[in-house]
Write a protein that binds this DNA or RNA. Sequence first.
DNA 1: GATTGTTTTAATGTATACAATTATACTCAA
DNA 2: TTGAGTATAATTGTATACATTAAAACAATC
Lengths: 213, 213
Amino acid sequence: MREFRTTSLADQVFDKLENDIILGVYPRGEVLTELKLVEQLGVSRTPIREALRRLEQERLINDTGKGSVVLGITEEDLLDIMNIREHIEALAAYYATVNATDDDRKELRHIMDLQDFYYSKWDVEHLRQVDDAFHDTICFMSRRAVITDTLVPLHRKTRRYRRQAMQDKERASHTLAEHHEICDAICSGDAELARSLLSKHIENAKIYMLGRK
Amino acid sequence: MREFRTTSLADQVFDKLENDIILGVYPRGEVLTELKLVEQLGVSRTPIREALRRLEQERLINDTGKGSVVLGITEEDLLDIMNIREHIEALAAYYATVNATDDDRKELRHIMDLQDFYYSKWDVEHLRQVDDAFHDTICFMSRRAVITDTLVPLHRKTRRYRRQAMQDKERASHTLAEHHEICDAICSGDAELARSLLSKHIENAKIYMLGRK
DNA sequence: GATTGTTTTAATGTATACAATTATACTCAA
DNA sequence: TTGAGTATAATTGTATACATTAAAACAATC
């Protein structure tokens, strides 16, 4: 039986609040106070404070000294995130191709299979999760800490909008086809192709979500 | 008399540790325990823990559950940071030019004057500070939260290497000249020129610090 | 009625006590 | 000497008490 390291309350609080803020459960402008969260979440102030400090570091909230204001992700933020990802994730794809191990390529192909499976079942929530896995795996495969640490939080912050986009079956099919192309480029070792395909992939997603801006 | 808001101990601890890690006072691999820091810094565990959570969020340390391992900034990290900045700071320069107010332009020109002053005095530490101010101001002028929040920490993390580079008077003079060109482009409203000049400026710094990689 | 000064309340900042966990040191037997 | 088992110490996780600050409510004066 595999042992799981129990995650601390502070981590759980952070994960929950981060997700809720990104998905808009706590809307922009809402004020979170430690005491309110103590009541809502049933833990003491210590883990809540630590979670709030981390959320602040990610700029999802802004501490006023008298409650923390939820910032969340605006459409302007989304545009910037996609513009940044367009450049940096292309870099990740390049390094991923260069540094990929056989296991990495196997893993990526497995993700493609899962993706096709969930598409055939038309399971939108799992499709979104597999989209996470696809992009995070490419980051990981790059073996570049700074690139990964820059991209993963940005990608997480688009969750709400990606979930929306996945509802559109035609758009989802387009996304999946691009993922396959990128996977093939990485697995065949063509780093420059992988770079340009991923850049184009993000640009297309940006245009779909925001129009050409 | 101007009133300063007293910064919390937690903030002070974060600032100090961040700076010391970036400058290498705590070398990569060193293990920081809360108790040791309590003794060294003379504050209780609460503010220290909050600072550690933030440092972990910035990936400057890695919490093992039994002490936090200092990660710091490696040369590989520096290369990635410069590659990322090359793209994103160019974007910032573009928006900065588009969104600049008269006050912004005045502020930027003032920074140029300070820069020339400290160069004439050959005050390296202040030159490095003014370099911070130059790049941070352009970020701020872009009025784009995500771009700023992505760039400012990355820029801070290069402090140690920039300080080194500023020691070289010929290199510093080159840097300063490029800053003037960029300032002129931004103030004249040529966004595309500002973008390409800033990209080139970062690339040159990268090449100086790391060679062509 | 507006304004000033005071009281109260709500919120955060900090220290510390206690619990739980994990590594270390130690003891004793084979 | 080595190894198992246990005690000890070190460290973090969590809750909570106390201090401090800032906002809100309120009262009193002009």
